[in-house]
Structures are given as structure tokens and as C-alpha cells.
Design a binder for these strands. Structure first.
Lengths: 245, 245
DNA sequence: CGAAACGTTGACTTGTTTCAATAACTGTGG
DNA sequence: CCACAGTTATTGAAACAAGTCAACGTTTCG
């Protein structure tokens, strides 16, 4: 007996926006044909590569980043199970960023042609995918605001809270905390800070009994205090039931 | 005799990605029914508003921004003629950002239902719109990198060069410069800097005969020098002929 | 067991902000 | 046509946040 498609984190996510029919679920399922595995640390997609496939992440964490000529790195976002990845690349001639698995990753390969074909068969799916892309963009926007207008402390906390919220949505986190495979260096490159400074901020958070980041775990010692400190409001994640029926 | 739809900056932009048929151009044209005018300074869309319409900008400049609880503002991006605006808002339950015209603006209103209807009739259009959204996201990503990993000087120059490249694409700028209705305050809020510091950076650029920002004009005194200084590379704008035929 | 990656801390330097004061524009009404 | 208010631009001095360099401790993994 096949596992119901509705179980896939991706279908669950799209279903949160558009109430999908059985036919649509079936078309979605067809996208999941090619399952692939990637080891940690080996780029799945790199700048300038001509990409024919996007991926839907089934397990593991990846990050998207760019490297500047001087060698500095800026991580744009992280993908967790259920997230689309590299969608921008298949629509463009060449990838404009790198994608690196931070852990061992399993993902379904989606060819550009499959996707366009699926859109032709069910335009509602196109709307749902457009929504997913828009939601990703909303997260990048919030990240931009985080870096542009918040100091290191607020920025760090806001980021870790957002990650928590996203993980809760797919059952990988609680208000107590979550497993987090990020090093302080990775965190620094995401936050636009130096690793040394991230370390100092994490120490302060620990000393103030707000948050403990250690041994691959994030522990919210005082969730409400953190929400207040970071002025965290997750309206931009838009996660509250199908809009389109 | 009606003006050919191909003339609209929006159609021209989509046409740059997908080679559209006459039927598709006609469907696009139908989206341009309701033409509206907005005065400068009066928000077209604001945070929390339930939005039923997006706009395609015909003339003028607008900016999208968020205000933080402390009152700080971060401008996420600017839209110039031909750009989509507020697309993320119609797919979401509520707008997650504000949109303010910086000049008098004319724009075509596009209802969510019209758009979904257009997708149903020509899925290729959905792909084209997805591309446009992806391109917008690519710009936000570059903006993020700009703020996260470049110092004030590089950041400012990179931003003004990108704006120039976008304006050249719609015939509103050259390598010599362009008309730019942004104040130093607006620029500061876009770059994640203080207005005072932006002023100092602009002075240095003027003194080094690289760029003059004055009286609503940006003049590239040394275009190549600027490109080198900012390590500017516009691959991410992906502007080089239809990919999908 | 050793090497490499990751984490921690202090001292010092730099880029950027803040505050404050003044000057130059822009548009409006007398 | 000028006076005025409001916005925008300019500059200096002092304060501050974050970066850099450098050394050392700790964990992880082959």
C-alpha cells in the first residue's frame, strides 16, 4: 500500500494554502518520482551552473548562499523538510547562488518540464506553487529587515525564533527548543556578523537565561522573553488555513 | 486603433522570458483594464490590510517597506515602470508590508481572480509570472547580500548601479546616469544606514569623481570605476532573451 | 591518537551611529 | 515677489557596536 501523498511535507505545505483535490494530489505525487540523496557539505547547486532540476526537500537541512569576490559568504536562507529548493534556478538560465546540504539530505528531483507540465494540467497547482514561492520571498524579506535594521542581539534571537516557528510547523520543534545542526560560523554568515561576535551574543543570551545554543540544540530558556526581546511577530509566515478553495 | 499590448513595459518584461503568443498577449491586455492613479506619499498598500488587488506599474516610482516597532524603517525594494507590485499580498491573507508611491504613479489594477483566471487559460503565462516573481526575489536576495556583507561605500554604489541597470532596461537610464527621485533619507532606509552616513558616503564618491548624486539625478562620473569598486555583476538580473519558446 | 574543525575569550581597531547645529532648497500663501 | 515653514542636505565631535587579530580550550572524527 503506498504512503498517502498528503503525508509528504511538501503536499502538506501546499495544502495549507490551496485545498487540493485528489487529482491534484496525484499530479503532485508524480513530481516525487526521483528520490535522491546528498551527503553533507557537497554543493547540490552552484553559482553559474545551468540547472535543469529543482528539489523538494524530504529530510535534512540545506542552506542557500552566495560568495563575494573577497571570499565573504552570505547565507540567504535555510531549507528544512517540505521546502522547495532551487526553484529560482530552473526558471533562470543559470543558478545565481549555491545550495549546500548541512546534513545528509534526501530530496525529490523535479524537472522544469515536469513542473510546467503539471501547471498545464492543474493551474490551481501553479497558484499554490506561486504562493509557496511568495512565502519564501516573505522570509527573505524578513531576513533582509533583520539584517538591515536590528542589532546583533535582536537579529540573532529573531532568526532563531523564526527557525523554531518553521520547524514546529513540520513537527521538528517545540516552544522548548529544537535540534539545530548549525555551527556558529554558519550562523554568523546567515546573520551578516562575524563568528566571534555571534559567540559573544550567544554567551550573553545564555547568561541572561534567555536561550542556550549548544551541542546542536537550541533551548528556549524563556520563550516569551525572547519573543519580546526580538519583537517577534510571525504574521509574515502566513500559516493559517487554506485561502483558495 | 489600439496601442499594441507588446508596448506595455510589463508585457515587454514577460516577453523577455517566455515568447508569448498573440492569444497570450490578448489575455495579458485584459489584465490592464482598470488604470488607476496614486499621488506621491500616500500608501497604496499597508501592513495588515486585506488586499484583493495587485498592480502593474505603468509610470512613477514606488517603494515597498516595513516599519519596526521602534519606528525604524527598512525599504525592501523599489518598483519602476513594468514591475509587478503587491503580488505577494494578494496570495496572502493580509499584506505583510507597505507600498508607498515616491512620485505620482499610474498603475493597472489586477484582481487576484483575474490572475488565477488568466493562469487557467494559459499556463505558460503562469510560468512567465513565476519567472517575474523569481526575478524580484533575486533582487531582494542581492539586496540582502549587499546589506549583510558589503560596507557602506560598496553597498551604496552597488545599489545605485543596480537601479541604473534596471532603468536602462526600460529606457529610463544610460551609462551616464539617470533621474532619481530618492532623498538621502529614503536611500538610507533602503541601505540599512543612517541618513547622515549616506551623506558622507555620497560626498566621498563626489570627491573621488566616481558618482554625483544631486538634484534628483544620479551621474556616473566613472562608470567602470564604480563597477570595479562595487564588484558589480548583474548576472542575477538574468536579462538575456526568452528561455521558454 | 592526532588533526581538524569548532568554540571561547581578551585587547585593540574600525565603521557607523547619534546628537547637535547650521545651511540649502521647495513649495505655499500673503 | 518675498517670507515662512517644512523638508532635505551638510558637517563636526563623541559614543558605540561590531570587526579583527591572536591565543587557547574543546569537541569530533578518521
Amino acid at each position: 500500500m503506498p504512503i498517502p501523498v498528503q503525508e509528504s511535507p511538501f503536499a502538506r505545505k501546499l495544502g495549507a494554502y490551496v485545498a487540493l483535490t485528489d487529482t491534484e494530489f496525484a499530479i503532485l505525487a508524480a513530481l516525487h518520482k526521483r528520490r535522491r540523496i546528498f551527503p553533507a557539505g557537497q554543493d547540490m547547486i552552484y553559482q553559474g551552473q545551468s540547472v535543469r532540476a529543482a528539489y523538494i526537500l524530504a529530510s535534512g537541512w540545506v542552506c542557500s548562499y552566495k560568495i563575494l569576490p573577497g571570499g565573504a559568504r552570505q547565507i540567504v536562507d535555510f531549507q528544512i523538510p517540505g521546502d522547495f529548493l532551487g526553484l529560482r534556478s530552473i526558471l533562470f538560465r543559470a543558478a545565481d547562488h549555491n545550495v549546500e546540504p548541512l546534513t545528509r539530505v534526501t530530496a525529490s528531483e523535479v524537472l522544469a518540464s515536469d513542473l510546467i507540465d503539471a501547471f498545464t494540467r492543474t493551474p490551481r497547482l501553479a497558484t499554490a506553487v506561486l504562493w509557496a514561492v511568495s512565502r519564501d520571498e516573505a522570509m527573505v524579506v524578513e531576513h533582509l529587515i533583520n539584517i538591515g535594521r536590528r542589532d546583533a542581539m535582536q537579529r540573532t534571537v529573531h532568526f532563531l525564533l523564526e527557525l523554531g516557528a518553521r520547524l514546529m510547523l513540520v513537527g521538528l520543534g517545540t516552544k522548548e527548543g529544537y535540534a539545530c545542526p548549525l555551527s556558529q560560523y554558519v550562523l554568523a554568515d546567515a546573520l551578516g556578523l562575524s563568528a566571534v561576535h555571534v559567540n559573544r551574543i550567544l554567551r550573553q543570551l545564555r547568561e541572561r537565561h534567555l536561550l542556550t545554543f549548544r551541542n546542536g540544540k537550541v533551548i528556549f530558556d524563556d520563550f516569551d522573553g525572547l519573543v519580546e526581546l526580538a519583537e517577534f511577530d510571525l504574521a509574515y509566515l502566513d500559516q493559517s488555513g487554506p485561502l483558495l478553495r
